[in-house]
């Protein structure tokens, strides 16, 4: 058995998210089209589907962060729901006990909460990779889960806490309009676009390149003078910030926070979404979040055993299509073009 700080098994043949696919302009056009479509959805779809899609924005933002860790830095976290939970509960506490009504300070303070948790957790966890990193993050996630569940007087245990609808941009509140499908929907869309742009800058910067170097050959990175732990820690911190933002959005769109948000299977589902969409592609996780939510709704309405279907889908992806839906799309596209 090798030491936990070395890669133990052979690496995959999967290409990591830096390969060139279809042309840049076409990509840009597709992304813009996607944003326009998302913006038009509330005009087209029924309220049921809009409400169903609300967690999509939260998961998309969380997965952008998670994939910085998984796809770009090569660390698999089985406890990332911890940061969604911290963000969501911070927002719930701030509103219930702090009387805070405005969205922007809520996001900032909840992100601060996520950072405060992420610093000690990250400092410990980034010393390990592979299975040990996965298990340590799982342990921290479960630690937070059991705190939420058992400290009833603070967290209301498994009943959770009701979350009110905060005032957006200082003047949009719930009077006279459909808050969730109206202003809040566009607020989330805007937030997703901004956070995706920031993440795009991060992964394309020298910093992002360094992370990939650490992922592919940490020994070489070290010998080039890169502080491997330090860079892993930065990636961890950024992913926690994204998780915190996602938690606030999720709390408001669901209107309720409860401990299962941080349970280890929730973390597992986040990794599932990332893989479903394709961790080798920048937008893959966002596609994965959307596909997961829609698929879950469809399968659940047909058959109560949706986890059996999802387990089978996950197994098929892991075995046959490790680069996920985006990988399949790119492959299909290349065949069409040729």
């Amino acid at each position: 058995m090798s030491t936990p700080t070395e890669r133990t098994t052979g690496s995959t043949e999967v290409k990591h998210p830096d390969g060139k696919g279809i042309g840049l302009w076409l990509k840009l056009a597709l992304v813009l089209l996607g944003i326009v479509l998302l913006a038009l959805l509330p005009q087209v779809l029924s309220r049921y589907y809009i409400i169903l899609m609300m967690p999509f924005f939260a998961y998309s933002i969380a997965l952008l962060g998670l994939n910085l860790l998984f796809g770009y830095t090569g660390l698999i976290s089985f406890g990332h729901a911890l940061f969604i939970g911290v963000g969501a509960y911070s927002a719930a506490f701030l509103m219930r006990d702090g009387g805070l009504e405005y969205m922007e300070p809520l996001i900032l303070l909840s992100v601060l909460g996520a950072v405060i948790v992420a610093v000690p957790v990250g400092l410990l966890a980034v010393r390990y990779i592979g299975i040990y990193f996965g298990l340590l993050t799982l342990a921290f996630g479960m630690l937070f889960y059991s705190f939420l569940l058992k400290f009833y007087s603070i967290t209301s245990g498994d009943q959770g806490i009701r979350v009110e609808k905060p005032i957006l941009l200082g003047f949009i509140d719930t009077t006279g309009i459909d808050y969730l499908t109206g202003p809040f929907y566009y607020y989330c869309l805007g937030l997703l676009v901004v956070m995706a742009l920031v993440m795009w800058r991060i992964v394309k910067s020298p910093f992002g390149l360094t992370l990939r170097c650490v992922r592919d050959n940490s020994v070489k990175a070290e010998s080039l003078g890169i502080g491997v732990y330090r860079y892993r820690f930065y990636a961890f911190l950024i992913s926690a910030i994204y998780g915190g933002v996602a938690g606030v959005i999720l709390a408001v769109s669901v209107g309720q926070v409860d401990p299962t948000m941080s349970y280890w299977t929730s973390s597992g589902n986040l990794v599932f979404m990332t893989l479903l969409g394709g961790f080798t592609s920048f937008l893959g996780p966002i596609v994965g979040a959307g596909a997961f939510i829609l698929l879950q709704d469809q399968v659940m309405s047909l058959w109560e055993y949706w986890r059996l279907v999802f387990g089978a889908i996950l197994a098929l992806i892991v075995i046959f299509a490790p680069s996920g839906l985006m990988g399949l799309l790119t492959m299909g596209w290349k065949k069409v073009v040729r």
């Binding site: 098994t9 690496s11 998984f70 996950l314």
Partner: peptide, 12 residues
């Protein structure tokens, strides 16, 4: 394969 995929398959 990579440990991440092994872990995920057992999660499936």
């Amino acid at each position: 394969r990579d440990e991440a995929f092994q872990l995920l398959l057992t999660f499936a």
